[in-house]
């Protein structure tokens, strides 16, 4: 029962699918952010796995930058969400479909 690269890639694909389901079915924007975190994490797993099985550190480097991007995305996204919630008192996606300026 040797765990190979394909095991990790399949796991990453399953987690990515779960994240995509979340992105498609959620209406609450906070839940949408959770789903994007799942997407980014599933990609990180495959980066680390490829880095390990090919003896190359580049995959880990990319995983670091993905983590940095996820952190800044959360900061800016939550800031925007708070501003929206202050003015409209909800964070539903359907009410944002038109930009009234």
């Amino acid at each position: 029962m040797e765990i190979g690269l394909n095991h990790y890639l399949v796991l990453s694909a399953i987690l990515f699918a779960i994240g995509l389901i979340g992105v498609m079915r959620r209406k609450n924007l906070l839940m949408l952010f959770f789903a994007t975190e799942i997407l980014l994490n599933s990609v990180n797993i495959s980066f680390a796995a490829i880095s390990h099985y090919y003896g190359d550190l580049t995959g880990q480097m990319f995983a670091f930058f993905v983590i940095a991007i996820a952190a800044s995305e959360v900061a800016v996204g939550l800031g925007l969400l708070i501003v929206w919630h202050k003015s409209h008192n909800n964070i539903d996606l359907e009410q944002m479909s038109t930009m009234r300026g």
């Binding site: 399949v10 990453s12 694909a13």
Partner: peptide, 24 residues
Amino acid sequence: DVKEKKGNSLIIFGLSTLAAFLVV
């Protein structure tokens, strides 16, 4: 409670699986 989008779950499931396979 969080309200959900009323979508066709079959389409959602199919598209997700397709996208995941594309990633692989």
